[in-house]
């Protein structure tokens, strides 16, 4: 089974020059073994970026929340916990791009594409409620709630690409979130 799915405007080679860049590679195993490392990393990267804003405290809260959700998902859904996940941040001035890359199991790729298709076609407020009600009856960790809140509450523009993993099992997943700098500055 192979899935090829693209959500949103996925611009692989942006010509926009970034004014600041940061990339971190993790062994998922290290973060699974000590889960709070996800939050520590998110806080650190958010703090690093927040100094570029007029209202650093407001930017910090949003950046840390979004980075943490992307990192937690990338780690949680990594098929092989010894294959690195990559988290990269680019500050383009008016927008901030945050990208998480990981390799997931085939079944997850299929479910994730299905979820994104719902996100694309359904009303997001209704989807938020329906996912919460669905979660209440299931013990699975795949709520999609992090993705929904990023788009619904943080004005994030979301792009995802799911492709069969190069030379291996599973699927490569790239999740890119773009946040508006002006929105981040708003208290």
């Amino acid at each position: 089974m192979s899935v090829e799915y693209t959500f949103g405007t996925y611009d692989e080679d942006s010509d926009l020059p970034s004014i600041s860049e940061f990339e971190v590679r993790f062994m998922p195993l290290d973060l699974v073994a000590h889960w709070r490392r996800c939050g520590m990393t998110a806080d650190f990267l958010a703090y690093f970026l927040s100094h570029a804003f007029r209202n650093p405290d407001s930017a910090l809260g949003t950046l840390s929340t979004v980075i943490n959700e992307l990192l937690e998902n990338a780690v949680k859904f990594s098929a092989d916990k010894r294959v690195p996940v990559v988290l990269s941040l680019s500050h383009f001035g008016e927008v901030i791009g945050i990208t998480a890359t990981n390799t997931c199991r085939d079944a997850h790729a299929e479910r994730f594409a299905g979820f994104l298709e719902r996100l694309r076609t359904e009303d997001i407020d209704d989807l938020f409620v329906s996912q919460i009600e669905h979660n209440a009856e299931s013990a699975q960790g795949e709520s999609g709630l992090g993705i929904i809140t990023m788009v619904k509450d943080y004005g994030a523009s979301l792009a995802v690409r799911i492709t069969p993993a190069e030379g291996g099992e599973g699927h490569d997943v790239v999740v890119r979130v773009v946040l508006n700098a002006e929105e981040l500055d708003r208290a």
Binding site: G61, N68, E72, I132, A136, S143, L145, G146
Partner: peptide
């Protein structure tokens, strides 16, 4: 200060 989406799910369950 922070609650991740799994926490929001848990809080939602209390609301339900």
């Amino acid at each position: 200060k922070f609650m991740n989406s799994s926490g929001i799910t848990a809080l939602s369950r209390l609301v339900l």
